[in-house]
Amino acid sequence: MIIPIRCFTCGKLIGDKWESYKKAIMSGRDPAKVLDELNITRYCCRRMFLSHIELIDEVLQYYAYRKGESEK
């Protein structure tokens, strides 16, 4: 749904690094290098980034639709 605040396995703080990660990925950079630069060294934390899908962005759009409906 939304990026977890900590790594599920080790508890490292990862929530604050998601946006810079996503920005770098969107500009076409290699995820491995971006993660190295962000000092995400363990594979437990790396999979948090690699496997994450920010679904909340999709869900928020439905809210906008419902809101418009209720205003009618």
């Binding site: 939304i2 990026i3 605040i5 703080l13 929530g15 604050d16 998601w18 946006e19 909340i56 962005d57 928020l60 759009q61 809210y63 906008a64 809101k67």
Partner: peptide, 15 residues
């Protein structure tokens, strides 16, 4: 908080 950039929730307009 140790860091001011940790996302807690995302809000759409009106939330």
């Amino acid at each position: 908080p140790v860091n001011n950039d940790i996302p807690i929730v995302k809000l759409n307009a009106g939330q």
